[in-house]
Lab assay of single mutants.
Amino acid sequence: MQRVNMIMAESPGLITICLLGYLLSAECTVFLDHENANKILNRPKRYNSGKLEEFVQGNLERECMEEKCSFEEAREVFENTERTTEFWKQYVDGDQCESNPCLNGGSCKDDINSYECWCPFGFEGKNCELDVTCNIKNGRCEQFCKNSADNKVVCSCTEGYRLAENQKSCEPAVPFPCGRVSVSQTSKLTRAETVFPDVDYVNSTEAETILDNITQSTQSFNDFTRVVGGEDAKPGQFPWQVVLNGKVDAFCGGSIVNEKWIVTAAHCVETGVKITVVAGEHNIEETEHTEQKRNVIRIIPHHNYNAAINKYNHDIALLELDEPLVLNSYVTPICIADKEYTNIFLKFGSGYVSGWGRVFHKGRSALVLQYLRVPLVDRATCLRSTKFTIYNNMFCAGFHEGGRDSCQGDSGGPHVTEVEGTSFLTGIISWGEECAMKGKYGIYTKVSRYVNWIKEKTKLT
């Protein structure tokens, strides 16, 4: 034993070699072989497995989906700052455009905790909710729209109204504003409101030439003092309507412009014939205590009207009353817009006519005020429907199939267009061939041609 100890002390290297040989010859039971080890760690190889990531292109799944990435790591994937920024906006807080917040056709661009709407022409605001041009839906104005110097929408209202708090709607500024039905039992019968379409306001006024200088022999019209197929109006439903009495009662109609003036057809009036105007009328054979009678003290036909040349060209006249009318729910003026808007309103496509005229061709006159909704007829169809001249200051309205029309005794009465609950004068009943005849239409004086003249002559002093 002493000898062994001496050998170990003198030859430590020998001992180490012996131990190493023993270990190498022993069977290893701690580690699995290569094949079995792979069965336990069965993990798919990654895209760049075996390579240094710093030297390969980034992978979106590896960089940002398996674990949260930084902007720089995302930049490695896209290799483009702009594309990385677009991805980053949604990656950080989701897609803010998912709810489609942009209105009126706006395009949404996502941002971090926010979004941006790219608005089409005519709109602005956070969600493109603000109209900035009158060309689109009248700028959301209830009545009139004008573009300011910086191309912003400025709404306005006709006389007797003021802008509401929203700067879009119009509200009454006087007790009985024009064009409004205020009798409670008839307010439910107000005709369907007309909503502004998209309009090209630059070209809204037709490029028409008034044929002022045409000389033409007097034409022989049949029954051209021209509501057939209409309905009984309720008291106060058309408070701007008046009836004219002269040699015979209810020979023509008219509309209240203001307390002192009536507008009617020029062919209705004769110099030297006494005319009485009755406002607030409903049943011409009954006294309903809503009527107001006034005498006409002055007749002003349009300066281009000449019955000797043509009885229905420039067929418009103004009547001055001896005493002002007292405005109330049964006696209310009709609204008159400017030339541009009167023309736009007419193009809405349908209007209402009213009167006490004959209820059928050569038949009896109506006792109760009649009204009828009539569609506008395109000019080409209008011209083809008659052998008589249709001037540019006239328009056609009615039904091709016949059966409904204005008729004798309705002449001078109103053709009105309702705009968001307020009625505007767009025409004056003038003439036609018979009444409600198939293929024939009622012919009306186009008020847009005469609004400046009306307003100039009827100013209240």
Rank of each mutant, 00 (worst) to 15 (best):
E66C: 00
N328G: 07
H302T: 02
I336Q: 01
E124G: 11
T445H: 05
F251A: 09
L52A: 08
D212C: 08
Y47G: 13
Q216D: 11
T458F: 01
V277R: 00
S423C: 08
R384M: 11
S217R: 07
L189M: 08
E124P: 04
R373I: 05
E165K: 12
E171G: 05
R3W: 13
I443C: 04
F360Q: 09
V243H: 07
G179Q: 00
T225E: 12
F388I: 15
T386V: 08
K440S: 11
R180V: 05
T271I: 11
K234P: 06
S70W: 01
E288G: 07
N5M: 13
W356Y: 15
Q2V: 11
Q57S: 01
N104G: 04
R373V: 06
E193W: 10
I214W: 07
C407H: 05
S107M: 09
V277A: 06
I40D: 02
V451D: 02
V277P: 00
K260E: 04
Y341A: 07
C141V: 00
V248S: 13
N310H: 13
E98C: 08
Y201H: 11
G253S: 08
E259D: 06
C119L: 01
A366N: 15
T264Y: 00
R379L: 15
E54P: 01
G179S: 00
G21K: 05
L425M: 04
V326G: 05
G357Y: 14
N313P: 03
T209I: 10
L321T: 03
R46K: 02
G50H: 07
L60G: 02
S430E: 03
T209S: 12
N222T: 13
A307L: 07
T458E: 01
C396L: 02
T290H: 12
N306A: 07
K311L: 08
K362Q: 09
E76G: 02
Y450Q: 00
N306H: 09
A279Q: 00
S255H: 02
D249N: 06
L23A: 08
V269W: 04
K247V: 13
Q241E: 04
C170E: 01
A397M: 02
N258C: 01
S430C: 05
Q2R: 15
S329F: 05
K89Y: 07
N258V: 02
L376T: 07
L211E: 06
P235L: 09
M8S: 13
C252A: 02
S25I: 13
C18T: 11
E159Y: 08
A207Y: 15
S187W: 11
H415T: 00
R191M: 14
N310G: 07
V377G: 03
Y161D: 01
R294I: 02
T194E: 13
E434Y: 10
W431A: 08
I336G: 00
G229S: 14
K260N: 07
C145W: 03
D410F: 13
E285K: 10
V77Y: 09
V447R: 00
N59T: 04
F176Q: 06
S148W: 08
H267A: 04
D93A: 09
L14S: 06
T186C: 05
M6S: 13
D338N: 12
L383N: 11
D198R: 11
G13R: 07
K152R: 15
M437G: 11
C128I: 03
T218F: 09
C435T: 04
N393Y: 05
H267D: 03
E142S: 13
F31G: 06
E193K: 10
H303V: 06
V269R: 02
H34E: 08
K459M: 14
D33F: 06
S448R: 02
T84D: 02
L319P: 00
C28A: 11
E98V: 10
R404F: 15
L367C: 09
D410S: 10
C252H: 00
S411G: 12
V92T: 08
Q143H: 14
W261I: 02
G357I: 08
K311T: 06
P12I: 11
R298H: 06
Q216V: 13
